[in-house]
Design a protein around this nucleic acid. Structure first.
Lengths: 239, 239
DNA sequence: GCGCGGCCTTGATCTGTGTCAAGCAGTCTT
DNA sequence: AAGACTGCTTGACACAGATCAAGGCCGCGC
């Protein structure tokens, strides 16, 4: 179970530095000093270990989260256990808004995760008369929606090979926003997670990685892949 | 090509009555009299005939739309022509927000369609200092996102029969919000549209309709279906 | 009233991906 | 260092849904 790291979040060295490193990307990125301090007073900084639930589908949605560090998987389940991962959340991402009083999906940590947690009431009261903040939330929601629509195209109309290639390209580009451009794409999630994200089985994902390696497009390395031929690779992902 | 119906949209009888009938559901539903009049002055009411484009992917996104009447299909294409319909828009729906300066998908009318069209600049200026309006846009975006996530689960993890059943139930429930509850679900879109929405081929959709009819769950009627056994049907759609 | 075109259905066959089963490679435990 | 656990890969086979092909229905124009 999660423990509160520093509920009264005055800036206290290492952890706050970590926190602030994603601020420009986060929901609170455009608040000025004074407002940000007020906003911070609403936050609980919470740390989760590997594979802990942040929240679960159908629970009362009493909090929203700004991801500070680590990676979370967001997913929905069918009654018989089939799972669809609807996204991977990275630092700066904002989680937990729902169109009903309950969460519409579940979220749990992959490795360790740190979040700013806000209770719904105080959070809504803070934003409700701050157009800047509301505009930013709109930007976030619009970006998420667009990502979701790309994923629908992928799930509905692409082959297994195209799915895997598009996933790697999309993931590489999202990481680039955080860590800069690299040739090696780190994959902190397991094969089963990738399968459940792409609407495939773990065997098909594994075979497809192998196939891409045989075709000299990638090299599989521990916890990631190295892209050998970005040109050809991007083409495969787009088509 | 579309023609302007009444660009200077003072209330003028029939058409405005039509318009206002969806107001409570639309983006402008919570504006008071005076503000709404100001908002209306920004709008162009535009009517489209069947199968006309409202806007297309990659075009400069210079306007947003509130759908007043009719039904639109929203879709994305792959370079080779494969199509994924990402949603059907109904009266009250709000279209055209994009995370970049260009539209991220295409929209065209199915039958005839009437919209309120707003140019981006004036629209943004109107909402930017109106928290009520921004909150409402957030609600709309959040609901859209949740719908998109449901659709990801459907596309990635459901069988053809489950897809068709879930589609009919979801569509029936959306229509119910507008027209009230009915046994007969009208389907203004063609089989190919349904196929492209569900990530199937037209043949599989057709066969699945026939199968559901053989199993006495539905009856196929012109431009729609009648649901015979809502209990059993909802169960199939959920599982 | 007849022919044409669009849309839908049905049948036969093919194939990409799922399923089932086995084995391998690290890593952790003791 | 042996065992076992977890995650990944590989192979053989099955099947849901795609593809290819034909035919039916209905509204529309002439």
């Amino acid at each position: 179970m999660p423990h509160l790291a520093f509920p009264n979040s005055t800036c206290d060295g290492f952890r706050c530095a970590t926190h602030c490193s994603v601020r420009p990307l986060a929901i609170c990125g455009e608040l000025e000093q004074l407002e940000h301090e007020e906003f911070e007073r609403l936050a609980q900084h919470v740390r989760y270990g590997p594979k802990e639930a942040l929240f679960s589908e159908d629970e009362v949605a009493d909090a929203v989260y700004s991801l500070v560090e680590g990676i979370a998987r967001l997913y929905k389940l069918l009654p018989d256990g089939r799972r669809q991962i609807i996204g991977f959340a990275l630092p700066g991402d904002f989680l937990g808004m729902a169109p009903s009083p309950r969460y519409s999906f579940s979220a749990d940590s992959i490795g360790g995760v740190t979040v700013c947690k806000f209770f719904r009431g105080p959070f809504l009261r803070f934003i409700e008369n701050r157009p800047q903040m509301l505009l930013r939330m709109n930007e976030f929601a619009t970006r998420e929606l667009s990502l979701a629509q790309d994923q629908m195209l992928l799930l509905g109309r692409r082959s297994a090979e195209e799915k895997v290639a598009a996933f790697l390209v999309g993931w590489r580009d999202r990481l680039a926003r955080l860590e800069g451009v690299t040739k090696t794409v780190s994959l902190p999630m397991g094969r089963q997670d990738i399968a459940d994200f792409l609407g495939l089985t773990i065997e098909t994902v594994s075979r497809t990685f192998t196939k891409l390696e045989r075709e000299k497009l990638i090299v599989i390395v521990p916890d990631g892949v190295r892209v050998l031929d970005p040109k050809r690779f991007d083409a495969l992902a787009a088509a």
